[in-house]
Computed example of a mutant assay.
Amino acid sequence: MGIQIADIIPRKEIELTDMKGKIIAVDAFNTLYQFLTTIRQADGTPLMDSKGRITSHLSGIFYRNINLLQEGIKLIYVFDGKPPELKFKEIQKRKEQKEIAREKLEKAKEEGDTEAMHKYSQQTVKITDEIIEESKKLLEAMGIPVVQAESEGEAEAALLARKGVSWASASQDYDSLLYGTPRLIRNLTLSRKRRTSSGMFVDTKIELVEFDKVLNELQINLEQLICLGILVGTDYNPGGVRGIGQKRALEIVKKYEYPLKIFEFVEKSDKYTLDFDWQPIFHQFKSFKETHKEKINFQNIDLEKIKEILVTDHEFSEERITNALEKLKEVEKAKKQKGLNEFW
Score class of each variant (00 low, 15 high):
Q4H: 12
Q4L: 14
R11D: 11
G21Q: 07
I23D: 10
I24S: 04
F29V: 12
F29N: 07
Q34R: 12
I39R: 03
R40N: 09
R40A: 00
Q41I: 02
A42F: 12
D43M: 07
P46R: 07
S50R: 14
S56Y: 04
G60H: 02
Y63V: 11
I66W: 04
L69Y: 01
L69P: 02
E71M: 12
G72K: 05
G72P: 00
D80L: 08
K82M: 08
F88G: 07
K93E: 15
K95E: 11
K95T: 12
E96H: 07
Q97Y: 13
K98S: 11
A101N: 01
R102A: 10
E103K: 15
L105P: 02
L105C: 01
E106R: 13
K107H: 01
E110W: 05
T114S: 10
M117K: 01
M117R: 07
K119T: 10
S121H: 09
Q123M: 15
T124M: 07
T124D: 06
V125L: 02
E130C: 03
E130H: 10
I132W: 07
I132H: 10
I132C: 09
E133N: 13
M142N: 04
G143V: 11
Q148H: 10
Q148F: 06
A149G: 11
A149S: 15
E150K: 13
G153S: 02
E154W: 09
A155Q: 05
A158G: 05
S166I: 03
S166N: 05
A168V: 08
S171Q: 00
Q172E: 15
Y174L: 15
S176G: 06
S176E: 01
Y179L: 06
Y179G: 00
G180H: 06
R183I: 13
L184R: 08
I185L: 15
R192P: 04
M200P: 04
M200T: 15
V202D: 00
L208S: 05
V209G: 00
D212A: 11
V214F: 01
E217K: 14
L225C: 03
I226Q: 05
C227P: 02
C227I: 05
L231T: 10
L231N: 11
D235I: 12
P238T: 07
P238H: 01
A249Y: 03
E251A: 12
K254I: 06
E257G: 06
Y258C: 02
L260K: 13
L260D: 12
I262L: 05
F263H: 08
E264D: 14
E267C: 09
K268S: 14
D270E: 15
T273A: 11
F276L: 08
I281D: 00
Q284D: 02
F288E: 06
E290D: 03
E290A: 12
E290C: 04
D302T: 04
L303R: 07
E304S: 08
I306K: 00
K307D: 10
L310Q: 10
E315R: 07
I321H: 12
N323M: 14
K327N: 15
A334K: 14
K338P: 08
E342I: 04
